[in-house]
Amino acid sequence: MTSLPAQPTPKRLGLVIDLDTCVGCHACAVNCKEWNAGGYHAPLTDFDPYGAAPDGVWFNRIHSYEAGTGADARVVNFPKSCLHCDNAPCVTVCPTGASYKRGSDGIVLVEEDKCIGCKLCSWACPYGAREFDTDAGVMKKCTLCIDRIYNENLEEVDRVPACVATCPASARHFGDLGDPNSSVSRLVADRGGYDLMPEMECAPTNKYLPVREKTTGAGATLPLEDASPEGGFLGWVDRLLSDASAA
């Protein structure tokens, strides 16, 4: 049934994404595509990859935004993937039972054999987490790398989603957001992690850590060296050479 499981689920696995440290390198998106092209949802479409209009399914897309104007303006790199919402509208709209949220850990998945490809779940999702695979005729989405995080053939250190494993800036964190003492929950509490588009009332599991306040007193606010110094060795050199050229 595509009804949602009882809340809260015992575990609420998800991601915490640090907008302050993300450098916008797209490595998470690339590693996501690489892993998932051979994983649970494999293969993923990749049409016209070197042509003028490449197209295909991605579970993770990296936007970048300008916010504000003048001295306070910021450029923010903004990765976006499935938020594995507690109140996931993509699950309840599914007419076939293909779309479901796991009662054990809260991961939202698609059972491809049941999916009729009606696309209604992609309409229901405010975040654009679901993409239609025109080749397989079914809907695809982030699995939170379910085939990595529980994979006992991998070293324990590698049992994290591909995007988290590859991030060179440690801007992506994986863990149980249902456990208030987990490292991700503490991170959210310390840094004021927030929900995207809370007015949609989806109760997303993934949280975003805000960009920190700008530090002041460094860099552009300090003046450059005075080119006409008074006194001292440099003052003497400046005076001597200035006089010499004038003479």
């Binding site: 907008l19 916008g24 936007h63 970048s64 935004y65 300008e66 916010a67 504000g68 104007t69 306070d72 303006a73 910021r74 450029v75 923010v76 903004f78 927030y194 929900d195 995207l196 975003y208 805000p210 960009v211």
Partner: peptide, 13 residues
């Protein structure tokens, strides 16, 4: 985006 605190938000890349 949750970036409204800085002001108006517009896509860059």
């Amino acid at each position: 985006t949750g970036l409204g605190g800085f002001g108006n938000v517009r896509p860059l890349d």
